[in-house]
Nucleic acid binder design. Structure first.
Length: 827
RNA sequence: GCCGGGAUGGCGGAAUCUGGCAGACGCAUGGGACUUAAAAUCCCAAGACCCCAGUGGGGUCGUGCCGGUUCGACUCCGGCUCCCGGCACCA
């Protein structure tokens, strides 16, 4: 790594203070051309590494660049300050979670300031403060009133290490999503609060099509996560009792091929179905055994299926067939009705199960062309479409037609209902931990569940907790002063809900709060959010694709339905930046591996750090931080510094008189304008790496330019300061102020525009190909006719021998680019 | 298994959308200048192979693999291989 030839840290401090005091990046409350650029806020947990720095630098470049282009930019920051690590740190150090949290916030804020990130700190928000989380509670109550927040008993994901339940989105490969936990998840039956996100499944899915500024990968991930499938719920009949047994299928065309029923071991019915058959003990035993397996064992099971006969039968409503009911471990209680009609002939899972338990396999769909003659000799189910057979009045239909006809038939007789099912589940938001937003609900012995009256919000987290250690029950239940309360309705004895909310609730609407962060009457004023939102550019990691990035869309839609805002999608454009590793190891605060902002900037400065993360790769790609990377950018900064030191007197900001330029001046001036255009184009497309490369190239041109007294050279120096400003703002501000001590910040100036008259030179280079292979070059003046260029190409000395090898069949001319002579060789 | 993305020098990457000089820019490397010396700095070279020639010029091959379209393919189309990511018994 290279030393810089200037005291970077000192210069950077000066200008950081200058911007701060001047309020350079304070938001204009009455924007004319608004642009809202937002980086996902941070969970403050200790020090900040270059992975964070990359995220914030990208946003900062956009902010500074657009401000210089005349936009009114909103660029705020805040703290996602509730969460488990604070509690764990408090347990470890015997202090309060807030202590660790606010210390972390201070540290992070210092780091952001060290990096020179241009935030409007007047709009800072902190989710663990009552002035913020009271609105979490307020939203909760509104959701409750609208039926979007509800309690139910369900089999839930339980993290034994964190001692709390988790949402589906927080279970990765059967383990806790938290990087330092990763404990295998267990299942527990509990009564908990949910948000009814499934009410919005359809719209969340449909509107993905509108998110044109989002990366395709994220859109696909969300589509799959929501997982829509169209089908029909069909009522089978329980033999003996006549009870209805609804099952969901997308393939009613295979209804005549059902040879058994399969029930999930954790479905409600599984507990009672065997009653009276004499198989109760066996069945109960099987269910218990299956459910004891952890999520990991269940999902890692390589398709080996297990089941047990319940002793009961179902009646197929279309043909009256009596079919055995099994309990099978491959059936999910949480999808559809928790029971499936099994068609081993046409479903691979059912096929495997049938083979194992010697159940019959019926073929009712014949593939067109090569019919199946002997079902017993199949070695896999035929899952494609085909012609129906053995299906009564539906024989001869094609599958797609049969699906419709059979569905119509079932619906008309009241034994089936077309239905759409989603993979997406309602969002479980209760957590049995302390450091979060208390759920503003009261449990009264007489009145049941009663929301805390809105004028009593916030329900503050009690600060005087003795023990944060999770015990498997809610921490707040043991804080008497909090837990014991009176019912707002009957004034009788009651207790507060002792759970706190998932921290993803806090982050589902924070982007709205920035528009109006100090409002103490409402979460935000409608006018303010409609002014600034939707977010024009949202920057963050792709790991949130199916979590936060779904939740904040959900909130936006609910709030739009509540009439609180006039848009239904929170972010127009999403930029998912890649991760940063250090010599191959992904940087991580919790694992304490990485290159840290503090030590690095004190040695090399923020501008070097910024250029390093920007130049290494395009923003969405992963990058590796190496010493060599730093060498490259510090050398670039040093070269700029030296050039300006040597030519301080030449720098000028007024354009040269283009009327009498020498040939070399003219060429430099053209290069300057081309570079200006490229920096603007690339930055607009967020191709920061090539925008910087263009500046490096131009710097090389300046070094090679010998007429140092030329006004073109001086103007180029002046212009380059502007081009550099969004990327290395401190150095640019320093160079600007040396020349313009009386003026304000360079970021109050306008970004330069290229002079269109000097974007291309007056001669062009034409490539001469023979049969598509490069043979020679021509340099011709602009305006040379096609005929002339073709003639010159035909006689180009290096092309001639190849042309002479045969007969010219065709001559292709591409304007301003090339001539290709097609020659047919003679033997 | 299904879905998405990718593969370019010794390395990070550029050109790919819209077919037209592949390898911009940077790192590492080699050479030179400056220096007592080193570092730093400045300048130059550089895909691989080959030929003529001697310090320049030319040729062949070359963007994961096979094939196609085209005057021309890193770019478009078809088929594969490998890597990364997401989901994973979703009926």
């Amino acid at each position: 790594m290279n030393r810089l030839p200037y005291p970077a840290r000192r210069i950077e401090e000066r200008w950081q203070r200058f911007w701060d005091e001047r309020g350079t990046f304070r938001t204009n409350p009455r924007p004319r051309r608004k642009f809202y650029v937002l980086e996902m806020f941070i969970y403050p947990s200790g020090d900040m590494h270059m992975g964070h720095a990359r995220n914030y630098t990208i946003g900062d470049v956009v902010c500074r660049f657009l401000k210089m282009q005349g936009y009114d930019v909103l660029h705020p920051f805040g703290w996602d300050a509730f969460g488990l690590p604070a509690e764990n740190a408090a347990i470890e150090h015997g202090s309060h979670p807030s202590k660790w949290t606010f210390e972390s916030i201070d540290l992070c804020k210092r780091n952001l300031k060290l990096m020179g990130i241009a935030y409007d700190w007047d709009r800072e928000i902190t989710t663990c403060l009552p002035e913020y989380y009271r609105w979490d509670q307020w939203f909760f109550i509104q959701f409750y009133k609208r039926g979007l927040a509800y309690r139910k008993e369900a089999l839930l994901n339980w993290c034994p290490k964190c001692q709390t339940v988790l949402a589906n989105e927080q279970v990765l490969e059967g383990r806790c999503y938290r990087g330092t936990c990763r404990a295998p998840i267990e299942k527990r039956k509990m009564t908990q609060w949910f948000f009814r996100i499934t009410d919005y499944a359809e719209e969340l899915l449909r509107d993905i099509d509108k998110l044109e500024g989002w990366p395709n990968s994220v859109r696909v991930m969300q589509r799959n996560w929501i997982g829509r499938s169209e089908g029909i719920e069909i009522d089978f009949i329980l033999d003996g009792t006549g009870e209805k047994l609804p099952v969901f299928t997308t393939r009613p065309d295979t209804l005549y091929g059902v040879t058994f029923m399969a029930l999930a071991p954790d479905a409600e019915l599984a507990g009672t179905i065997a009653n009276g058959t004499g198989r109760e003990a066996e069945v109960a035993d099987f269910c218990r055994r299956v459910l004891l397996r952890s999520e990991i064992e269940r999902t890692a099971a390589t398709g080996d299926k297990e089941g047990i006969f319940t002793g009961r039968y179902a009646i197929n409503p279309v043909n009256g067939e009596r079919i055995p009911i099994y309990i099978a471990d491959f059936v999910l209680a949480s999808y559809g009705t928790g029971m499936v009609m099994a068609v081993p002939g046409h479903d691979q899972r059912d096929f495997e199960f049938a083979r194992k338990y010697r159940l019959p396999i019926k073929v009712v769909i014949q593939p067109e062309g090569s019919p199946i003659t002997d079902p017993e000799r199949l070695n896999a189910a035929y899952t494609g479409i085909g012609i129906l057979t053995g299906s009564g009045e539906f024989n001869g239909l094609r599958s797609d037609e049969a699906i419709e006809r059979i569905s119509d038939y079932l619906e008309s007789r009241g034994i089936g209902r077309r239905k759409v099912n989603y993979r997406l589940k309602d969002w479980l938001i209760s957590r049995q931990r302390y450091w979060g937003t208390p759920i503003p609900m009261i449990h009264c012995e007489r009145c049941g569940i009663v929301p805390v009256p809105e004028d009593q919000l916030p329900v503050e987290l009690p600060p005087d907790v003795q023990d944060y250690k999770p015990k498997g029950t809610s921490v707040l239940a043991s804080v008497q002063s909090f837990y014991e309360t009176t019912c707002p309705q009957c004034k009788g004895r009651a207790h507060r809900d002792p759970d706190t909310m998932d921290t993803f609730v806090n982050s589902s609407w924070y982007m709205l709060r920035y528009a109006d962060p100090k409002n103490d009457r409402l979460p935000f004023a409608r006018e303010a959010v409609n002014t600034w939102l939707p977010i024009d550019l949202y920057i963050g990691g792709i790991e949130h694709a199916c979590g936060h990035l779904v939740f904040f869309r959900f909130f936006t839609k609910v709030l739009a339905d509540m009439g609180m805002l006039d848009f239904r999608e929170p972010a127009k454009t999403l930029l998912t930046q890649g991760m940063v590793s250090h010599n191959g190891v992904t940087m991580s605060s919790s694992k304490k591996v990485g290159v840290w902002v503090g030590p690095f900037t004190s040695e090399y400065g923020a501008d070097a750090a910024r250029l390093a993360v920007l130049f290494a790769a395009p923003p969405e790609k992963n990058m590796d931080w190496t010493d060599e990377l730093v060498t490259g950018v510090t050398r670039f900064l040093g070269r700029i510094w030296r050039l300006y030191e040597e030519n301080g007197n030449a720098i000028r900001f007024t354009p040269p008189d283009t009327g009498n330029l020498s040939e070399t001046e003219r060429q430099l001036y053209i290069r300057l304008n081309q570079t200006t255009k490229k920096v603007i184009d690339d930055t607009t497309a967020w191709q920061f790496n090539t925008a910087i490369a263009a500046q490096m190239e131009f710097l090389n041109d300046l070094y090679a330019f010998t007429e140092r007294n030329s006004p073109v050279f001086g103007f180029a120096l002046g212009r380059l300061i502007f081009l550099l400003a969004p990327f290395a703002p401190h150095l640019a501000e320093e160079l600007w102020h040396r020349q313009n001590p009386e003026k304000g910040s360079i970021f109050e100036e306008r970004f330069p525009e290229p002079d269109p008259a000097f974007l291309s030179s007056d001669s062009i280079e034409i490539v001469v190909q023979v049969n598509g292979r490069l043979r020679d070059h021509l340099t011709v003046p602009v305006g040379t006719t096609e005929e002339e260029i073709k003639r010159l190409a035909m006689s180009a000395p290096n092309a001639r021998p190849f042309i002479d090898r045969g007969k010219v069949v065709r001559v292709i001319y591409v304007r301003d680019r090339l001539v290709n002579v097609v020659v047919k060789e003679e033997k």
